[in-house]
């Protein structure tokens, strides 16, 4: 009995060790980035890398207010991401309700169409968008960028919201109808409050995707619309070795999504698994 237990304990310890090692693989690049971001340029270039050094805040100052300020880019990212998110939710939630619940002609085809639009490779959109926006002089404009961002956020949001809408019992609407609510009132007072959780998940995913988007931003943006992802990229291509400042800037740029990620960890996992768990049953 005790032999068994000791073997089990040893197994647990080994497991923990292996798991912890793998854990380290995932956190290390981030921890290292944090460490580097506090190094002076001379400490950065020390090789082998130093672990003990005089931490400085200079890199963050520079990244925010200095020559390499990314404040403008942060603002741009915020404007584009928030606008995209708001527009996406406004368009996706009613559509998802109709798909999940209502009689709609050609529902299957439209549903397949929405799904299929998710399969379009981004490069297959950035090429025509460049040509089109170029023609109508909308390159490097907020409007253009937000329109483009809808291409990936909207189908995804509709798809995600449909699975939340499907979870609402039919009796909710039936009860509301009997209580003399109109269809709009039912949607507004009964349905939407019950998918608040789903809307939150959708908001998080749409926002994260918009904030992190790079391909459209780098090619269809410019000096006016330059989100942080592009600013980061330019940083490296222009300032080859200012890696401490890059780390600081990148960490600032990623701070919003990291905070959202940790705070909304549960919702994100829910969003990730909804397809895997529900998709198994649905054809």
């Amino acid at each position: 009995m005790s032999l068994h237990r000791r073997a089990a304990t040893r197994r647990k310890v080994v497991l923990m060790a292996v798991a912890a090692a793998l854990l380290l693989v995932w956190v290390f690049p981030l921890i290292w980035a944090v460490i580097v971001s506090f190094k002076s340029e001379s400490d950065v270039l020390a090789y082998p890398p130093t672990v003990f050094f005089e931490p400085i805040g200079r890199n963050y100052e520079d990244a925010l207010f200095g020559d390499f300020s990314i404040l403008d880019s942060l603002a741009t990212s915020a404007i584009v991401s928030v606008s995209t998110t708001v527009l996406t939710i406004v368009l996706a939630v009613p559509a998802a309700y109709a798909f999940a619940r209502l009689k709609l002609p050609a529902k299957k085809s439209i549903g397949f169409y929405t799904l299929a639009t998710q399969m379009v490779p981004p490069v297959g959109l950035v090429i025509p968008y460049f040509l089109i926006l170029n023609k109508v002089s909308m390159l490097d404009t907020y409007t253009g960028m937000i329109i483009v961002y809808l291409t990936f956020s909207l189908p995804f949001a509709i798809w995600l919201m449909v699975s939340y809408m499907e979870d609402i019992p039919f009796e909710m609407e039936e009860a509301a109808f009997l209580d003399k609510a109109t269809r709009w009132q039912t949607l507004w007072h009964i349905i939407i409050p019950q998918v608040r959780g789903g809307i939150a998940v959708t908001v998080i995913f749409v926002f994260l995707n918009a904030w992190n988007e790079f391909l459209f931003a780098v090619q269809l943006g410019g000096n006016t619309v330059r989100p942080v992802t592009v600013a980061m990229y330019n940083f490296v291509s222009v300032e080859q070795t200012l890696w401490a400042k890059l780390s600081a800037a990148a960490l600032i740029a990623m701070l919003p999504v990291v905070i959202i990620g940790i705070a909304a960890q549960k919702q994100i996992v829910k969003g990730l698994t909804i397809g895997a768990v529900k998709g198994g049953g649905r054809r």
Binding site: E171, M172, A175, L178, A181
Partner: peptide, 15 residues
């Protein structure tokens, strides 16, 4: 909604 009917559902359908 036009029938002026009230109903108690089996699973209550409370909001």
């Amino acid at each position: 909604g036009k029938r002026d009917i009230a109903m108690v559902f089996q699973n209550y359908a409370l909001y």
